[in-house]
Simulated scan of single mutants.
Amino acid sequence: MPNDYFKFKQFLVKQDKCAMKVCTDSCILGAYTPVTQAATILDIGTGTGLLALMAAQRSPAQITAIEIDAAAATQAQENINSSPWADRINVYQQSLQEFSATNQQLFNLIICNPPFYAASHLSPDQARNVAMHSQELSLSEIVRFCRRFLSATGKLFILLPPTESRNFASLAQAENLHLISALHIFTFTRGKHIRTIQGFGREQITPVPEENLFIRNINNTYTTAFQELLRDYYLIF
């Protein structure tokens, strides 16, 4: 059983009301995404509020966080209220579709750790299904939303498994959102490729910079690259 909270250097994330707990790959997304130049940030599917909080620690931006699940949205609000950045983060308990229907703001940065599993992987836990499975929010809906609401120089950073990341890149390209960076995440050196973080923008970059991040060494210690990436957040580094 995971702990009902996760303590970072500058904030605490309670997670007992959320189907999706704090996980390493989401922390990597929060630490890797470039936020310092963004004045407006949107966190799609905020869950515990983790990514919004990580962004707020490194950025003076005004941050909007949306979450479809009522219990998770309540917990995200609690976590943000107890953080140093409560005045800069607004939580809305809405689906992306509902938010899209009323939103009039453009965002310099959109960050997303979306649901991605197919219906064949459904579990008995409905809240976890909403958090993990794409029947409530498809990748194509995310692409269409970003096409409308990214600013002219805005960027999208999204975390997906390898196969889904390739599918997403094709969908984005069809909407003139171009791949600008890719970070491939591996469990160990010479281990399994588990996730890819992709950056997208309206301008094409050739060649697209790509790199690998290995979380642990063969001896199970954290790699230097992982430690450096998470140093501002993890208490153990």
Rank of each mutant, 00 (worst) to 15 (best):
M1A: 11
P2C: 06
Y5T: 12
F6D: 01
F8G: 06
F8M: 15
K9P: 13
F11H: 06
F11W: 08
L12D: 11
V13F: 05
Q15G: 07
D16I: 12
C18M: 07
V22K: 02
T24H: 10
D25C: 09
C27V: 15
C27Y: 05
L29G: 04
T33I: 08
T33R: 04
P34D: 01
V35H: 02
A38L: 06
L42E: 05
I44M: 11
L51E: 02
A52I: 08
L53C: 13
A55L: 05
Q57T: 10
S59E: 05
P60M: 04
A61F: 03
Q62R: 11
I63R: 04
T64D: 15
A65N: 08
E67W: 12
A71P: 02
I80A: 05
N81C: 01
S82C: 12
D87A: 07
D87F: 00
R88T: 12
F99N: 06
F99W: 15
A101L: 10
T102D: 10
Q105W: 00
F107P: 01
F107R: 03
F107I: 07
N108L: 00
N108Q: 13
I110E: 02
I111S: 02
C112I: 10
P114A: 12
P115N: 14
F116S: 02
A119G: 14
D125E: 11
Q126W: 00
R128V: 01
N129C: 09
V130F: 06
M132E: 00
E141N: 12
E141R: 10
V143A: 11
R144V: 09
F145N: 04
C146E: 04
R148W: 03
R148Y: 03
R148L: 03
L150P: 02
G154P: 06
G154D: 03
G154Y: 02
F157E: 06
F157T: 07
T163E: 14
T163L: 13
E164V: 08
A172I: 02
Q173F: 00
E175R: 08
N176E: 15
S181C: 08
A182I: 07
L183Q: 10
F186G: 01
T189M: 14
R190Y: 08
H193L: 04
H193D: 00
I194Y: 03
T196G: 04
G201K: 07
R202H: 09
E203F: 02
Q204W: 08
I205H: 09
I205A: 08
I205W: 03
T206L: 10
E210V: 13
I218H: 15
N220S: 14
N220D: 15
N220E: 15
T221I: 01
T221Q: 13
T224D: 15
T224E: 15
T224P: 01
E228K: 13
E228C: 10
L229A: 07
L230K: 11
